[in-house]
Design a protein around this nucleic acid. Structure first.
Lengths: 335, 335
DNA sequence: CTCTCTCATGTAACCGCTTACACCCACGAG
DNA sequence: CTCGTGGGTGTAAGCGGTTACATGAGAGAG
């Protein structure tokens, strides 16, 4: 079942069938009708490989993430898929697992599949990979932190905004010793969150205390270990900000294991607002980073590069906002 | 950059290059070396579209799931991706969102992309879709419940085993009124879990009590609503089995909202053992369904159909086992 | 020394589609 | 009546691989 058979049945040339399907040029409505009828009757589906090969465009957009198992990413995948399919594109998902080697494989896949663009939310991306994609004229958009450049757009997440809201929230509850569990130090976006936090302390007249800042790994176990460490400080924090929700869950576990309660003894704030945050016990106060906003802007950034022949990238901003739930409360009375 | 340039540089024909890459027939080691050298120097990657078009095989396996946001599925995706990439395949993910219309679109995508096989873990699959795939000679494997047939294999999940362990565990803790929150009734696998539970009651001499069985929707809100309902029974259950973990989380929330504690007042058992189960508060006692086991068997089932020209499907079994954590405890003293 | 036979390689058709280009025809202007 | 003009369609050359078939070079047998 191919375009030739459709052409034969409709009594037209394959070119006309192709033009009808893609409406790339004017086709007499009567002819078009015949063609669609033939397509229907034969149950014809164009072969995407042949299509991509002939046209040079695959109508696929890649999405590279660092950890498909962190609920943030499936949620992002879903949002991205929604907007992308609405516009006739498909999505190719790749998972780096925080590993540079796998990152390289992901890029290789993207090149081989000739994706029309790729959205990247992971920090394993290095110069060589960017170069490899740029060399094939594949537009990129970084959903995190990056630099706009040739073929690469950037979506800046306004971490500072959400962190500021979180810190103000905690200050309002009377907290003065606020801890911070950062992401892995080699992760640029993690460093940004960390410095946003430190700036905040400064802004509100709190002194930075090295003992109250500790690195996790953006996963449960890292949060657990980090919080465990923070609790051993001379004067442990009465509230803690975690650099993502999984870390916050780990922190909560550590607090419980130490025989303390959340939020009665220690308040916890997460970051991302993944689904499990609202069904956790207690429901997690966290900074929401909108997946749909991110996905939409990523798509537009890519489309911009695909359609406009200008290879220059563009810049976007996604805001973040605090969502108050039940993992934060007033500072303990004895403080 | 294409195979011709490689051929020219290595002073051989394109056929030899192709044969070297795919080692589909003997190539003189010296020649092969030259070819690989040229490939390296030029940074050549074969174009997958051209490859698929010419060979008729895409080296892509599809994976259709019902809800990418339920953590069970990303975990399955990861496992499946691991085994699949080890064997030189790639994976195309499709998400039905529990919706029949989207299911049809997913199947269309699979056909258009000419996947070499598809693994299906969703119940939206209907006869027409199976027919569509079979018509294109695409092997299928159902990771759930299905019937083995022409080109379709099946992986039976031994729900009864895990549910039996769970019920015995609860009986051992002294529970006699055990509730059950099932999945949506239109879902075959949900009905199977439900009847496995009922058979269990019978086996251990408990009477089935209609009031203690209520349907959820395999999501948090459904579990919440169902548990809320169960708690209004004349004599509410002292323990509850949920048909998946998200449902269990919802149930726990309902229990807390009613002013009761888990496990002191009501014990809760989940199903799946998704990641969040072990970092929930309290850590969830649940029945583990191994993703890697599932993924591996799915892959082998598909490979069997792809390699052996026999279009007959095969049958596999995946076991399930109880994982005891902290959401279950002894029946309250006043019972 | 010639004849097979085998192994390694080359030649070229083909996979299913897109698209540049050529073509035809109808129509209005000169 | 001839000559653009442009809309609608067909022809055919690719896109970048795979693979059936042809070919040529040695090796061993007679």
């Amino acid at each position: 079942m191919n375009i030739k058979e459709v052409a034969k049945r409709a009594n037209v040339s394959t070119a006309t069938v192709s033009r009808t399907i893609n409406n790339t040029s004017f086709v007499d409505p009567k002819t078009a009708k015949k063609v669609w009828k033939a397509i229907d009757e034969l149950g014809y589906h164009p072969n995407t490989h042949a299509r991509s090969l002939a046209s040079g465009r695959s109508r696929i957009l890649g999405l590279i993430v660092s950890d498909i198992v962190n609920p943030f990413f499936p949620e992002l995948v879903k949002s991205f898929e929604d907007v992308v399919t609405q516009h006739g594109y498909e999505i190719l998902i790749a998972n780096t697992d925080y590993c540079a080697t796998r990152m390289a494989l992901c890029v290789k896949r993207m090149v081989e599949r000739q994706v029309d663009g790729v959205a990247i939310m992971t920090s394993e991306m290095d110069g060589a990979s960017i170069e490899a994609l740029a060399h094939k004229s594949i537009p990129m958009v970084f959903l995190d932190v990056g630099t706009v450049g040739h073929l690469v757009s950037n979506i800046n997440i306004d971490y500072a905004q959400g962190i500021d809201e979180a810190v103000r929230h905690l200050l309002g509850l009377g907290h003065r010793r606020i801890g911070f569990i950062s992401g892995p130090n080699n992760l640029k976006s993690a460093r940004i969150r960390r410095s946003a936090f430190i700036e905040c302390l400064d802004k509100y007249g709190l002194v930075e205390n090295e003992q109250l800042i500790f690195a996790g790994n953006h996963k449960f176990d890292g949060g657990l270990a980090a919080m465990h460490h923070l609790l051993t400080a001379e004067r442990p924090p009465t509230a803690v900000l975690a650099s993502n929700d999984l870390t916050a869950f780990g922190a909560i576990r550590a607090i419980r294991l130490a025989g303390l309660r959340v939020p009665d003894d220690v308040s916890v704030v997460g970051f991302d607002d993944i689904d499990p945050a609202h069904f956790a016990e207690p429901p997690l106060t966290t900074v929401r980073l909108s997946r749909s906003d991110l996905a939409e802007k990523a798509f537009h950034a890519l489309m911009y590069s695909v359609n406009i022949s200008t290879p220059a990238g563009r810049e976007f901003v996604v805001e973040t906002h605090l969502v108050v739930r039940e993992s934060t409360g007033s500072v303990p009375l004895d403080e």
